[in-house]
Amino acid sequence: MKKFDFCDGLVAPLDRANVDTDAIIPKQFLKSIKRSGFGLNLFDEWRYLDHGEPGMDASQRVLNPDFILNLPRYHGAQILLARANFGCGSSREHAPWALQDYGFQVIIAPSFADIFFNNCFKIGLLPIVLDAGSVDKLFHEVEATEGYRLAVHLQDQSVTAPAGKTFFFDIDPFRKHSLLKGLDEIGLTLQHSDKIKAFEEKHRAAQPWLFA
């Protein structure tokens, strides 16, 4: 997993609620058997005016000039500001892959869908929940100020705005530790192999029909 500790980044606002994973990365791109390269097709149906298919040359495609990420002032954004229930829908990890591949390191929203939220941590993309009022305030500030940046410190669990106002967020201590260190969760779990085996034996004795 990619390590995350700190990000001082340009913020892009995506002002709609219930952004689903089909919108984040449409299904035709899920046919890929790779983990990388999804950034080009992030928000494909909103970002381009022509219909995207895997393997197309992105430089030949027609950009939608009205889509927020296509505005020059948001180019190079590393922090995505979003509305409630971001990432709802399917379990596709391709959605966090695409966001990360595009360049985002942090997503701030009042709430996230469960599976998406969970998937982000697995790849070192940080989803931050702030209360709806604070998020609303940030939307106003971002839209009003060109070049608006936020500083995110995982260690302090803080998001600091340019004028110095700081918001604090919650994070599970285990997740925080894994992110800060960029730990391989499978490796960590395998350290408990003996426990897993002991559990398995007990489980087999109680419910033998679960084992072939």
């Binding site: 983990r35 399917s90 379990s91 596709r92 990890e93 391709h94 966090p96 599976i115 969970n118 998937n119 697995k122 790849i123 969760e185 499978i186 779990t189």
Partner: peptide
């Protein structure tokens, strides 16, 4: 449902 990293896990 789980994501691909969890499938591997």
């Amino acid at each position: 449902g789980i994501g691909t990293s969890e499938v591997e896990h």
